[in-house]
Design a protein around this nucleic acid. Structure first.
Lengths: 156, 156
DNA sequence: TAATTTTTGTTAGTATACTAAATATTTTAA
DNA sequence: TTAAAATATTTAGTATACTAACAAAAATTA
């Protein structure tokens, strides 16, 4: 057994478990829908915009440009997107989803475990909201450095 | 901007942000301490046990055997651990931390962002506990499938 | 005892995800 | 108008993380 000395360590441990569950689910999606969670998130945005470029997608899904490029490579290999060099601005590569990709979302692959979604939806709305805001708050706390150096003056 | 139609999507998005923050922090640790978060988690356990085997570590840190093997490979390359084949049970490889590895933890590399740790510690204890239990609950909800199929009968 | 199963660890193959550097193009400034 | 800065995307290199398949050894069962 793990003895937990520190609540912060426990937070990390709890997060790690969640991260792993999401990853495992993503790998199951490949078998059933031929698409992973990161690929689905990117594809969803492409379908939303009809036509877009990779830098927009990187901002939307909160990933680096390099990561988005590799995800787009795989989507292209699977014929889920088409990349066309832009004529207006030759630096840009326009991205569009194929018919095939749109059809995948007709079946709506669940981006989180069905068990989680079912359980979550059965919670009271206030509880769902509380959970979400807790997660958002943790996210803010972890990205705090970028927000403001002035706050740091107060702590130490 | 992302229009969010579904609170479940928002939960995934919030989690993705947290996951990314942890990953980015891990990459910063390499520069400062020469060790990543997953490596540190594994090494911490090795130091705790003094001597152990990879299957124990995989259970402790909640990772697959293959992943632990690759992390151990890197720890070995950095001379943070020594692997010795066991004489009792020739399947087992005994793992021990080196002096060098123990010294790293004298400096105590922070496994989460210092900003997060500082902010988290400033919360009231009840709030820390609430956050932790929310995360643990999400973890349970996501790993529910393995727990019980009987519960599923009730939902659909 | 012999055959089977389980345990333990590694390897192969794939997908994510990052930074830094390279390339090409466009915009801005001198 | 040319040089410098900014923008857009990709490539290279590294680390995580998984499953499946493999090999070796140990434990169990017939």
């Amino acid at each position: 057994m793990l003895e937990k000395t520190d609540i912060v360590d426990e937070v990390l441990f709890a997060l790690k478990r969640i991260i792993r569950a999401i990853d495992l689910h993503s790998k199951k999606l490949v078998a059933e829908y031929g698409i992973t969670v990161p690929q689905a998130l990117v594809l969803k945005r492409i379908i939303h915009y009809k036509q877009t470029v990779s830098s927009i997608l990187a901002k939307d899904v909160n990933l680096s440009h390099a990561t988005v490029t590799s995800i787009l490579d795989r989507l292209e290999n699977h014929h889920y997107i088409i990349r066309t060099p832009s004529l207006d601005d030759k630096r840009k590569i326009l991205i569009e989803a194929t018919e095939q990709a749109v059809n995948i979302f007709k079946n709506a692959p669940p981006l989180l475990q069905e068990e989680f979604i079912t359980a979550f939806r059965q919670l009271e709305l206030w509880e769902q909201t509380l959970m979400l805001s807790t997660l958002q708050r943790i996210g803010v706390m972890m990205n705090a450095k970028n927000l403001s150096a002035s706050l740091l003056l107060a702590c130490e």
